[in-house]
């Protein structure tokens, strides 16, 4: 069913990582990604792995959930590994068949790549597991607010994002209804070739778009009725405030990044 699509993948449990300021969590994630991609040795991967493990333990997110986020990218992982394995030509040749060749270097690189991607996915999914979509939107708005100076519509963008999040379940439900209605009229949605299936979507998309526009108009009126006038002079129920724990977290992150860079340079 369409309803089963989970949005964002917020996993609400009580933990230190959940309570942290979402702005800091975004910064941590970015630092982590840079650290991971700047690193070029197994030692940096080990440092990254320790970092992820620590975050994972602090987040109280079950390992099963992390596996769930890795699963969809398994094909990509296999693809990358195979490509690296077959086309990297360095070190001793272990096996050869026509133009294909597996070398020592190829094996090390593909293992390295797999580990790096795995760490990337597991680490960055912790951000979305521990932060609700609305807090994430608020954090993005806050982090991008310096762009207001160059007239970038930061508030409007954040408002659009949160309205989109709000309407996803509503529109999914609506899609479900329209699909049932069209099926009841004899539309076959899941048979035939690719082109036929694409064409079968048209009678679903058109009513969906029309209703989405109607909803948008009504929502705009309702927002005006509640005195909406853009970001100017607007206050927030929950304003983001950095706590000592956030600065402590930042310090830990920076320490990890420093160690990782030092290892890179010393090598």
């Amino acid at each position: 069913m369409l309803k089963d699509i989970t949005l964002g993948q917020y996993f609400p449990v009580e933990s230190l990582l959940h309570r942290m300021d979402p702005r800091f969590k975004i910064v941590f994630t970015m630092l982590f990604i840079v650290m991971l991609f700047a690193g070029n040795s197994y030692l940096t991967l080990v440092i990254g792995a320790v970092f992820v493990l620590m975050a994972q333990l602090l987040s109280h997110i079950p390992l099963k959930m992390s596996w769930k986020s890795v699963k969809p990218i398994l094909p990509v992982l296999v693809f990358t590994a195979v490509l690296n394995l077959l086309f990297i030509d360095s070190g001793d040749t272990l096996w050869e068949w026509r133009f294909l060749k597996i070398t020592q270097g190829g094996i090390t690189t593909s293992i390295f790549m797999i580990c790096r991607i795995l760490l990337l996915i597991v680490g960055s999914s912790l951000l979305t597991y521990t932060t609700s979509p609305i807090l994430l939107t608020d954090a993005i708005e806050s982090l991008l607010s310096p762009l207001k100076r160059i007239r970038f519509p930061v508030h409007e963008m954040a408002m659009m994002m949160s309205i989109a999040l709000r309407f996803i379940p509503t529109l999914l439900e609506e899609t479900d209804k329209i699909m049932s209605a069209q099926k009841a009229r004899g539309a076959s949605l899941d048979s035939g070739g690719l082109m036929q299936r694409v064409r079968a979507l048209i009678p679903i998309l058109i009513p969906l778009f029309i209703s989405a526009f109607r909803r948008a108009e009504e929502l705009a009126t309702a927002m005006e009725c509640r005195c909406y006038r853009g970001g100017e002079g607007r206050t927030r129920l929950r304003s983001l405030k950095a706590q000592p724990r956030d600065y402590a977290g930042l310090a830990v992150c920076l320490a990890f990044a420093a160690v990782s860079i030092t290892v890179n340079i010393l090598r």
């Binding site: 949160s162 309205i163 929502l219 309702a222 005195c227």
Partner: peptide, 24 residues
């Protein structure tokens, strides 16, 4: 459905006072 703005009930109720610039 077409007049609720936020993804959480209390955030939605807060929408109008936020627009009016009421202190948190």
């Amino acid at each position: 459905d077409n007049q609720i703005v936020a993804t959480i009930v209390e955030e939605d109720v807060a929408f109008a006072p936020e627009n009016l610039g009421v202190p948190p």
